[in-house]
Design a binder for these strands. Structure first.
Length: 228
DNA sequence: AACCGGGTCAACCGCTCCTTA
DNA sequence: ATAAGGAGCGGTTGACCCGGT
C-alpha cells in the first residue's frame, strides 16, 4: 500500500477551520489530537490543532491586554522560575504560556532598549530607573528559594550601584542569573544594599507579602505541587 | 499616499517527557 | 522492560498592524 501523505496545511487559521475544530473538540474532547485532526477533516496536524485550541479557541481564555496585576505576577513568577512559561501560565487563569512568553519578550526587549538608551545617555535617568527597578524586582527573589530572607526594604541607593554594576551586562547574562539558584553578581548587589537601606518601602513584596497579596493564587498550589 | 521600522502575536519547530501497549 | 506514539514545553519565526516621516 502506498501512502501518499497529503501536504498538511500550515499558517493562519480561517474562521471555518476554527469552527470545524471547535465542533470536533466538543464531540471528542481535547485529547487525542491526531485523531481530532483526522476526523475534523482539517488538513492540519494534530499538533497544529492542539496549539490552535490551547492558545486561541479554548473557552476559558482571556484575550486582550494584561492587567497590571497580571503583569506584576508575571514578573514575580519569572523571577522565581525563569522561562517556565507553562508553569507561570498555570498561575494566571485564562492566559496561555505562549501569551505570557510573548508578553515577556516584548516587555524585556523594551526594558533592554531603555537600558541601552540610558547607558548611552547618562543624564536620562527615568528610563534607566524603570529598568533597574525591574531587575531589582527580579533578582532578589531568586535567593528566596534558597532560604534567604527578604525584608522588603530597598533600594534607591542600590540603584546607583546597580547602574555601574550593570554596565556591559548583556541580557543573556541576566537570563542566566535569573535561572541560577544563586545569582552572584546582581543578587549580591541587591542583598548588600538591602541590609543598609530600610527607609524606602520596596515594591517587591517579601514572601509574607506575597502570601498576603496573592493568597489563593499560587502558594497553596505550590505546596500541593511539592506534596505531589 | 507611500514607505519604513518597531511592536505584537499566532503559529511552527524541535526536543523532552509521559503514557500505553 | 521497552519501544512507539502522543502531549507538553520553550525557542524562534514571520505576518500583520500601526504610528511616524
Amino acid at each position: 500500500m502506498v501512502t501518499v501523505r497529503e501536504e498538511m496545511r500550515k499558517g493562519p487559521w480561517t474562521e471555518k477551520e476554527d469552527m470545524q475544530l471547535v465542533c470536533t473538540v466538543r464531540l471528542f474532547g481535547d485529547r487525542r489530537w491526531d485523531f481530532i485532526a483526522q476526523v475534523s477533516g482539517l488538513n492540519r496536524t494534530g499538533k497544529s490543532c492542539c496549539l490552535r485550541w490551547v492558545n486561541y479557541l479554548h473557552p476559558g481564555l482571556k484575550h486582550g491586554r494584561m492587567s497590571p496585576q497580571e503583569e506584576r505576577l508575571i514578573i514575580e513568577l519569572h523571577a522565581r522560575w525563569g522561562n517556565r512559561w507553562s508553569r507561570i501560565a498555570r498561575r494566571l487563569p485564562g492566559r496561555t504560556d505562549n501569551e505570557i512568553k510573548n508578553y515577556w519578550r516584548t516587555h524585556m526587549r523594551k526594558k533592554a532598549q531603555e537600558r541601552k538608551m540610558s547607558l548611552s545617555s547618562p543624564s536620562s535617568s527615568s528610563s534607566s530607573l524603570t529598568y533597574q527597578a525591574c531587575l531589582l524586582d527580579t533578582v532578589p527573589v531568586i535567593g528566596m528559594g534558597s532560604g534567604d530572607t527578604h525584608n522588603g526594604s530597598c533600594v534607591t541607593s542600590a540603584l546607583e550601584n546597580t547602574q555601574s554594576a550593570m554596565d556591559g551586562y548583556p541580557m543573556d547574562q541576566i537570563w542566566k542569573e535569573i535561572e541560577a539558584p544563586q545569582a552572584p553578581t546582581l543578587l549580591g548587589i541587591a542583598e548588600g544594599k538591602e541590609k543598609t537601606c530600610s527607609s524606602i518601602p520596596c515594591h517587591l513584596p517579601s514572601p509574607a507579602m506575597w502570601d498576603y497579596k496573592y493568597p489563593e493564587v499560587f502558594w497553596k498550589m505550590e505546596d500541593q505541587e511539592i506534596m505531589m
